[in-house]
Computed example of a mutant assay.
Amino acid sequence: MSGTISGLPVHATAGARLGHNRITHTAIRTTLEALTARAFRVDRSNVSAELKDDAGKLGVSVSVKLALPPLLEPRIGSGTVFDMAQSARADVVSRGVELTGLEIGRVDIRLVGGHQEQQRKRRVA
């Protein structure tokens, strides 16, 4: 089976179907929110993202509510929250490109506040 599309020759094997794939705006936004949540080690519900054009690339603006450890307990990990944001930005760009196939431009991260990290209760059978 063969044909042309926009003047270009197209060759397809028997049973193959021509078409296109679309990734919705919501799917891309949700994927980038999940990547950001993973990078900051917070629940996905604590992240929101907005997508915009960045000179032909995908611009991303994310807001993150960080979990605040109790102030009197020893601090786990090293580095500042700004170091964490820089690392998260790199993760979002690299994994975002890998998962969506889109060229990601500017990634703005806004730390909008904190919430007390809750202990998860486990049921023992």
Rank of each mutant, 00 (worst) to 15 (best):
V62L: 05
L72W: 13
G114D: 08
A27S: 10
G19E: 01
L99C: 02
A16N: 11
E117F: 05
R120A: 09
D83C: 08
V93T: 09
R41W: 01
A85P: 08
K65T: 15
I5T: 06
T24A: 01
T4S: 03
G79M: 10
R120G: 06
D53P: 08
T31L: 09
R89W: 00
T26R: 05
S63W: 13
R122E: 11
I109V: 11
L71Q: 12
D91A: 10
D43G: 06
A14Y: 10
S94F: 04
L58H: 03
R120V: 10
V93G: 01
R17T: 12
P9A: 15
L72Y: 14
T24K: 00
G113H: 09
R110I: 09
L32P: 05
G3N: 08
G56W: 12
D54V: 11
V92C: 03
V60T: 06
T80N: 07
K65C: 06
R106V: 11
V42D: 03
S6C: 11
S48W: 00
L35T: 02
A49V: 02
D43R: 09
P69N: 12
R29H: 02
V93K: 02
K57F: 05
S63Q: 15
L102A: 04
E103Q: 15
K121V: 15
V93Q: 10
V81P: 08
T26N: 09
G79T: 06
S48M: 04
Q119P: 01
K121M: 13
R29G: 02
I23G: 01
T80D: 06
P74D: 11
H11Y: 10
K121E: 09
P70G: 10
A125N: 14
V92P: 02
G96V: 00
D108S: 09
T26Y: 06
A14E: 14
T36C: 08
R29C: 00
M84S: 12
S2H: 07
S2F: 05
D54K: 10
P69T: 13
M1G: 07
V81W: 06
E33D: 13
P74H: 11
G113Q: 07
F82G: 09
V42C: 08
T24P: 00
A37F: 08
V112S: 12
Q118W: 05
